[in-house]
Computed example of a mutant assay.
Amino acid sequence: MSTDNRITARFVVPAELSDRRLDQAVAQLMPEHSRSRLQTWIRAGALTVNGESRKPRDKVMLDDVIALNAEPEVQVSWTAEDIRLDIVYEDEHLLVINKPAGLVVHPAAGHAEGTLVNAVLNHAPEVENLPRAGIVHRLDKDTSGIMVVARSLVAHTSLVEQLQTRTMGREYDAVVVGSLTGGATVDAPIGRHPRERKKMAVVAAGKPAVTHYRLVERFAAHTHIRCRLESGRTHQIRVHMAYIKHPLVGDPLYGGRMRLPKGATPELRDLLAGFGRQALHARQLTLEHPETGERLSWEVPLPADMVALIEGLRAHARERELHDF
């Protein structure tokens, strides 16, 4: 609990936790806090045993009194802004949002204002005291779709754990260059590009990354696919699809030069040339509710620009079939 904005708690060590390490015992007693946060409080002396500071490895015994009296860590100094949010679901722990393309998630150099975080701070001011203002995963600026924000420490700890253990399900729609003939899995490590620092790449020393994809619809020279992530590396789908020579339509970093299908009409040329972002949309999110344990799932429809792109590619494919016939 918290008193006068301080985080306080008091426990008497039960028999089942006697002779356990202090950091292990408090992780059981206060599961709403991450282990790293608890260890930080122990080392700082904010978490004591019988009124004395201890080390994380020190043992606790039956009837020891564990007390916490800590200042909340104000994680952000950004300004709340009245920016409209497309809220799919919310309760005291979770805020599920349908993010439009073009909206930056986190303030950074060049984007100190007008971000999703600024909007969330206005809607749910309590996230100011959470790490990264409750953001546990991100979408690129020009990727649209569903994402979750933690509104409590309980939720933040749970969501980070679900991401780490890969129990949070995330599925994306994408339109890629080239006609794929079937679904597959891309299992290739991703790290910083060796020469271009703004880009990621498949590199031997990178972190493990796995993307599963399946076909939704094949066009004359493009394919609508659905991707499921096992990991969450920066630009993962964009990097993996470019790696297998099927980059996302409109991708400014990994797409290369625009490629037109054979017999492209002026309308299709304009459609592809005018699609000014990577054709990627986070369509579905599945997770375990941090308080109830209930498995929840949400889905958001494709935005208008991707609907128009797919309809244009479909119309061209039909024209080609009629012409070839």
Score class of each variant (00 low, 15 high):
residue 108 A to L: 10
residue 227 C to M: 08
residue 77 S to Y: 10
residue 261 P to F: 06
residue 149 V to I: 15
residue 164 Q to W: 07
residue 233 R to E: 03
residue 322 L to C: 04
residue 214 R to H: 13
residue 296 L to T: 02
residue 43 R to P: 03
residue 319 E to I: 02
residue 304 A to Q: 12
residue 59 K to G: 04
residue 93 H to N: 15
residue 229 L to D: 07
residue 148 V to R: 09
residue 115 T to H: 10
residue 213 Y to C: 02
residue 308 A to K: 13
residue 174 A to L: 12
residue 164 Q to I: 09
residue 253 L to C: 04
residue 165 T to H: 13
residue 251 D to E: 05
residue 1 M to Q: 12
residue 12 V to R: 14
residue 271 L to N: 00
residue 316 H to C: 05
residue 297 S to V: 06
residue 137 H to D: 06
residue 98 N to D: 14
residue 125 P to V: 03
residue 187 D to L: 07
residue 200 M to L: 04
residue 120 V to D: 04
residue 218 R to E: 13
residue 133 A to F: 02
residue 56 P to C: 03
residue 316 H to Q: 09
residue 262 K to D: 14
residue 102 G to T: 07
residue 185 T to A: 12
residue 268 L to M: 10
residue 84 R to P: 11
residue 120 V to W: 00
residue 54 R to G: 02
residue 247 P to D: 02
residue 188 A to F: 02
residue 226 R to M: 07
residue 202 V to A: 00
residue 159 L to H: 07
residue 124 A to Q: 07
residue 301 P to F: 01
residue 18 S to Q: 12
residue 23 D to N: 13
residue 224 H to L: 12
residue 214 R to C: 12
residue 198 K to A: 09
residue 231 S to P: 07
residue 237 I to M: 03
residue 22 L to H: 09
residue 74 V to G: 06
residue 127 V to P: 02
residue 320 R to W: 12
residue 314 R to T: 14
residue 29 L to E: 08
residue 119 A to C: 00
residue 129 N to H: 15
residue 36 S to K: 14
residue 3 T to P: 04
residue 293 G to P: 10
residue 202 V to S: 00
residue 284 Q to N: 10
residue 183 G to E: 13
residue 157 T to F: 09
residue 317 A to E: 11
residue 106 H to T: 11
residue 219 F to R: 10
residue 91 D to I: 04
residue 212 H to T: 07
residue 179 S to K: 15
residue 26 V to F: 11
residue 99 K to Q: 04
residue 64 D to V: 02
residue 125 P to G: 10
residue 3 T to N: 14
residue 124 A to Y: 03
residue 92 E to A: 14
residue 188 A to Y: 01
residue 14 P to M: 06
residue 84 R to G: 10
residue 310 I to G: 11
residue 320 R to P: 05
residue 198 K to Q: 15
